[in-house]
Computed example of a mutant assay.
Amino acid sequence: MFTNNDINFEALKRKAYNGRWATLEDGIIPLTAADPDFRTAPEIEQGIIDYLKDGYLSYGPFSGLPEFKKSVSDHFNKEKQGSFSPENVLAVNSAAQGMFLIASYVLHPGDEAIILDPVDFLFKKSVETAGGKVKLCPVDKETGDIDFEKMVSLINSKTRLISICNPHNPLGKVYAKEILIKIAEIASDHDLWVMSDEIWSDIIYDHRGFHTYSSVSEKAKKKSFTVYGFSKSFGIAGLRIGAVLCHDQDILEDFTERSHFNSTIEGVSTLSQIAASVALQKAKPWYREFLAHLQSNRDLVYQLLSRSEVLTPNLPEATFVAFPKINNGMTSDEFAQHVLKEGKVAVVPGSERWFGKGAEGHIRICFSTSKEIVEEGIKRIITSF
């Protein structure tokens, strides 16, 4: 199901944008955007077809279809130690949109938000779009550990929000319950909001446990939002479907109102919600095979890079991206440009643009593809020097 023969490269070259097959010259291997090369689960395809059979594509409830809200809450409660009800779920147009809506809800112009460094660029972008100011809290690039002393020192009268990425992109770190409780205590002591981006929480290796942030303590439930999406675990990025979860119903209702999800101004495609619901209800066997394939690829990337002198690999606990360290003195941008030109492989540089100042000296490699593509891509990177 996840072999090289299962990849439709012609379809990818027509449809896979965002720095992938459809945007690059023939002959270049894209190990860039975190999106699978495999077609989505057959159960999802059939679910979309079945929904269309009666010929109606009407408006759904503004906050989300009942089956969508229930499937998301059930998934969090069974798989992520959650305690959500369907009413705690709001359907949004992707996890990324959820992040932007939360920043806009929490921050006024001039307010400050603490984000991790390095971390995906959308954290910084969402704060700045809301008129807020970013404060960077360092994360150890080898261990993923958060510098809590620095985090507390960043808090002042303008601070409104702490945003975390769990599992962490690009480091692949899964934060334990004890770490999340500590974040909740800091937030509670200073009356801050917390946003936990958990879009990667389905892609976790070695049977490691995961705790959704807002369920680790009573303090974590207060003034917190959780963001979730389906693009990583089920390969439906183009359907633009995600969720915002919040235990406090009054807060979520106010958030829904102020984000314009209480009328036809906003709202999510019913077709996308059906696809997501089917994914969680019927496509778990496909997902489990996908996860096993990804863990095998993770181990393969680590083994191949361990033989290299130009890169030192990390072993991510989660996500399907690796974040190896550059050893030859090149900057991240120089390295990425070199392997693109000489090796015909596209990777994401660990530059400030993509991950913040703390990412320099690394590249990000996506391995959500076939074993053959991974092997060829890593071989080209190593032999291009």
Rank of each mutant, 00 (worst) to 15 (best):
G350P: 11
G132E: 02
P313S: 02
I236M: 10
F385E: 13
S233P: 06
E352M: 12
G229M: 08
S384L: 09
E25A: 13
H362M: 08
L65R: 10
V227H: 05
I274T: 11
I146Q: 05
T32H: 13
E266S: 15
I102M: 05
K78P: 02
L280H: 07
I382A: 04
F38T: 04
L161H: 01
N77C: 04
T264R: 14
I49A: 07
Q295D: 11
F385R: 11
A336S: 04
S368Q: 07
S272E: 00
E360Q: 15
G144E: 04
D299V: 00
S71H: 00
G64T: 06
S215D: 10
V345L: 09
E178M: 01
D189V: 00
L24T: 00
G47E: 03
Y105H: 07
Q295L: 07
E218G: 13
D206C: 09
F121A: 05
F385D: 10
D254C: 10
K371G: 03
F84S: 06
I186P: 07
S83F: 09
I373G: 05
Q46A: 11
L294E: 05
D189I: 09
A346H: 03
I382H: 06
S231N: 09
Y213A: 06
K69N: 05
A243N: 04
F320L: 05
P316S: 00
A292W: 01
C246I: 09
R20N: 12
E317V: 04
K53P: 01
G238I: 08
I203D: 02
T159A: 01
E10K: 04
F148S: 00
Y228K: 06
I373T: 14
I204H: 03
S201T: 11
R20D: 08
L300A: 07
S233Q: 05
D333S: 14
A359Y: 13
K284A: 14
V244N: 03
L57V: 13
K284C: 10
R160P: 09
E112R: 15
S126Y: 11
A336N: 01
F255M: 09
F9T: 09
S83Y: 09
Y51F: 15
S94Q: 11
E360W: 12
A176S: 03
G267F: 04
F367Q: 05
V92T: 11
K182R: 13
K182C: 02
L57D: 12
I49S: 02
T312W: 06
T270H: 02
T143Q: 05
G64H: 08
S368W: 03
K141L: 14
V301Q: 03
A33C: 14
F385C: 09
V321C: 05
R288F: 12
H211M: 04
G172K: 01
H75L: 10
L161R: 00
F225A: 07
L116E: 11
F385V: 13
L294G: 07
R307T: 12
Q303R: 15
F76K: 01
I365D: 02
N93H: 09
G377E: 10
I114F: 01
S306I: 14
V216W: 00
S63M: 12
Q295M: 08
F230A: 00
P349G: 10
K223C: 06
T143A: 04
R39S: 15
